[in-house]
Design a protein around this nucleic acid. Sequence first.
DNA 1: AAGGTGACTGGCG
DNA 2: TCGCCAGCCACCT
Length: 109
Amino acid sequence: MRRDPPGTFAAAVIRHVRRIPPGRVAAYGDIAALAGSPRAARGVGAVLNGLGPDQDVPWWRVVNRVGRLSIPADLGRRALQRRLLLDEGVAFRDRDAVDLEHHHWDGDA
DNA sequence: AAGGTGACTGGCG
DNA sequence: TCGCCAGCCACCT
């Protein structure tokens, strides 16, 4: 799995994703900004993609800027994310887009 | 160490 | 918001 030295982008991403409360979602770009690199949204995806099974990071609470699940549909990972969010009470606008208006995490506030 | 890849975005029509 | 596209940037060869 992935152990990242503190101070790295990856570590910051993990740290912030852990802060997303259940029932709320954040965009890749939001996390990138919190992590200190506002334009590194894709980097956030790369980090989450490399997460180990026991990393204990709520990766499913991260969606793209319009609320759509950005995970490739294969391997059923996508369906899993959908289910996990549903279980937390996140409402969906359609098959693979959450209702951002009501569940977007303000990054605290 | 250089280049390819992609769980992204914002701009434009 | 939808599609398309050109930047972007961290990851992984």
